[in-house]
Design a protein around this nucleic acid. Structure first.
Lengths: 260, 260
DNA sequence: ATTGTATGTTTGTCATACAAACAAGCAATG
DNA sequence: CATTGCTTGTTTGTATGACAAACATACAAT
């Protein structure tokens, strides 16, 4: 991805190619939103948790302004729901929601796959193959962190190759919500192996440049993940739908802040 | 929709059913966001326009706080793009974006249709028929405002009946962006008539409870709208992709504010 | 023509303030 | 005892003022 950032500028004869200056991440509010988003994905802020802005300020060390603007962002991502004068609450997703979320993601990835088959460059197809191999290796070594990173790259290539900016954006935004219970998918036994097979199918179809096959492969991949999650939800108790746990301390004493 | 809001509460014997108290719309920031959104849809804030927060404050008569929070909301709806330290700019959508936007909406409405066929209540099916008739009547009378309202209701029923909250949410958010050039669709000659035929197909399939047929009908409906827009984009100049028009007044004089 | 400097503008962030909505406790009342 | 009403503390919603940093532009110097 980041390899082709600095070419084709043609500033003179020797390509200068230096790394861009650190754009200091982004704005503070963006980083604040990221932090909260991450905390939600990790269940450090569990579903149903009531977010008080002043707590967030202290936890993150930023002002109320930044926190509030970050919250507006998460709000329209539907990661939190805000009741006027009561503040934001981390969404609680039902089993139904999970199914719908995956259903939507399935058809959208179908679109991505279909368009990738016709719009992607040969390099992108090759890159897919390379990443699939890397993924298999990481899986054999049982290195989940690495695997996750490779999966993310895999998707980036898929999105870029499909040339469908809109679709990619929406899937990303879906994923922030899916991440709330993605852990369930990984925990499912046998899932990693099945996933590798699905990925292999995707890459093969991509190499064959077969839109319909690639579409189906992508859909099946999502359906696999969905099935894994639903199985977990059915078996163990779904860790999604409860209320705010100990949101009300015994008396009205100066509540020590819980660490984010 | 709002007919079944007040039942099943069982507060005593005589159902009380009174209208909820005016929740004063919502918060001020929400209304601010609505106002800006509307202005963008109407091209009173054209694509590429550079939004300065202080102008918005004056135009809308609210404080910077509210404007900024509203902007964060629109930002993550992808209606505006914010460059740090330069401020937000109304998105410029290319023809490609238009196609992708409709493509995504098509598959998603396909899902809605498919699920409506199996999940909707008989009342909802009947309501669909009723609205279709009203729509035809409004179209005959050439009352575009009324027609638009009925279409909105039609979709609400469709969404509710599909029981897929997620899908509905996403389509809504897509529509905010689609609305930027929806006017093109309406302007297309012969479009209203074609639309009525598509709607008729949808209702028939819904009455037949045929998931596959309903899915196809929904998809075709969107494709019809898409084709109309693309035709307009190809013919006339697409009013989407330009830059900020007169963003720089001649000198540095006290610029009279342009009315939103 | 290029480079540097000065100046004004706009955003990003913080701090503070206050009214309105809300929640919970306690008191008064029937 | 259940209900009602009052009181009080908490939290959000909104406004305002302030200031540094990033940016844009005009102007001056080379």
């Amino acid at each position: 991805m980041s390899k082709t950032l600095n070419d084709s500028a043609g500033m003179g004869e020797t390509a200068f190619r230096a790394d861009r200056i650190e754009r200091k991440s982004l704005t503070l509010r963006a980083r604040t939103a990221d932090a909260i988003r991450q905390a939600i994905a990790d269940h450090r802020l569990p579903p149903g948790a009531h977010l008080k802005e002043r707590d967030l300020c202290e936890m993150l060390g930023v002002s109320r302004t930044s926190v509030r603007e970050a919250l507006r962002h998460l709000e329209s991502e539907l990661l939190i729901e805000t009741v006027p004068h009561r503040g934001p609450v981390v969404v609680s997703l039902t089993g139904e929601d999970a199914r719908d979320l995956y259903k939507v993601r399935a058809v959208l990835e179908g679109v991505v796959g279909e368009q990738f088959a016709t719009n992607a460059s040969d390099e992108q197809v090759a890159e897919l193959r390379r990443l699939a191999r890397a993924m298999a290796k990481a899986a054999r070594k049982d290195a989940p962190q690495v695997t996750l990173g490779i999966i993310a790259d895999f998707y980036q290539v898929l999105f870029a190759g499909s040339k469908n900016r809109i679709c990619a954006q929406i899937i990303q935004s879906l994923n922030t919500r899916i991440s709330i219970f993605r852990r369930l998918s990984l925990a499912s036994k046998g899932r990693p192996k099945a996933m590798l097979a699905e990925v292999e199918r995707i890459v093969s179809a991509a190499e064959a440049r077969d839109p319909e096959a690639l579409k189906q492969a992508c859909i099946q991949h999502v359906e696999g993940a969905c099935a894994a999650v639903m199985r977990q939800l059915a078996a163990g108790m779904g860790l999604s739908g409860q209320q705010k746990p100990p949101d009300r301390p015994a008396k009205r004493v100066n509540t020590g802040r819980k660490s984010i």
